[in-house]
Design a protein around this nucleic acid. Structure first.
Lengths: 167, 167
DNA sequence: CTATCGTTTCAAAGTATGCGGAAATTGCTG
DNA sequence: CAGCAATTTCCGCATACTTTGAAACGATAG
């Protein structure tokens, strides 16, 4: 396979999958582009490579920085343009993504369960409801803590944890 | 809080969150409804509770059965209606969801990386690309195996694994 | 065989989401 | 402070996804 084709395919599929991870397609494509680029790129280069508008490029660059997946790269000289590069250490990328997804996918559920917990009532329906809420909450909290710990682990220990889970 | 309000809130929020988990809203709402119901419900009851059409109800009931999150409940008598109940053991629910999401979110990436691996070329760009692909693949495979093992664990061991990750 | 219930399929309507382009803002430089 | 370039915000449009309602299909009991 040629480099050009491989890059196109990588960016396309990564963008596609991004949607299923709750990341919008363009954001995932910008990320893919920077991941496989050997030098930092500026907004204009990204716009051109992906055929997207300035507003769109900027929004997603900003979002990727919020997620901690790309960085500004200081550039010498009187060039006022800003250049960006992706975090390339996979364990770091992984932790950042877990962190963001936990915030979006798990935290709201825990809030919901807290709200639902103070239900005072004793009909069979209420009991079933409360039982389910309690069980869900206990499980969610375990998952919450487990993920928090994954996020805190340094890269070395993260690999170790995964390896232990493989055995 | 009253039961009615709590139920409505639970179903609404669970549906909302479902979207962020890659599950469509109605499917998640049907799931929520059955989770907190103390007895099995038929399609008509589900339609009425959630104000959805027959086609929609049926599609999502079937999808939930495919995911292994709800079951048909055999019913006595000459009643030809089919009744459904949710799997209520959280560890089972958790495993089923992980299984489906892995299939949708991780497997396609592994396929992509396999494709991108046989790139024969030696310019700096290609090297950067190949390096990234290799690293991603090694990491994805670890995650893949870790998740497969989570799925295989029986409920008792799953809790144990989570607890170990909390410490 | 026919009446009834359940399931599946399909086109059309409705809704949400992402995107582009322009306008507003920021920040620097001379 | 004026002028310029980069960045960010906002709004209307386009596209994709969901849902509906109807119609076709299948199965079963009488």
């Amino acid at each position: 396979m040629q480099l050009k084709e491989a890059k196109a395919r990588f960016i396309h599929t990564w963008g596609q999958q991004g949607v299923s991870w709750g990341i919008c397609r363009t954001m995932a494509q910008v990320h893919a582009l920077l991941l496989i680029s050997c030098k930092p790129l500026c907004a204009d280069q990204i716009m051109e490579e992906l055929n997207i508008s300035r507003g769109n490029a900027n929004m997603n660059i900003r979002a990727l920085m919020d997620w901690g997946l790309i960085y500004k790269v200081p550039k010498e000289g009187p060039d006022r343009k800003e250049y960006f590069a992706a975090e390339k250490q996979m364990t770091v990328v992984f932790k950042q993504i877990v962190k963001q997804r936990k915030k979006k996918e798990l935290d709201p559920i825990i809030d919901l369960l807290d709200e639902c917990e103070d239900l005072k009532s004793s009909c069979p329906e209420s009991q079933e409801f409360s039982k389910m809420v309690t069980e869900l909450k206990s499980f969610s909290q375990k998952a919450d803590m487990a993920l928090d710990n994954l996020i805190k682990l340094d890269s070395h220990w993260l690999s170790g944890t995964l390896l232990r889970m493989i055995k």
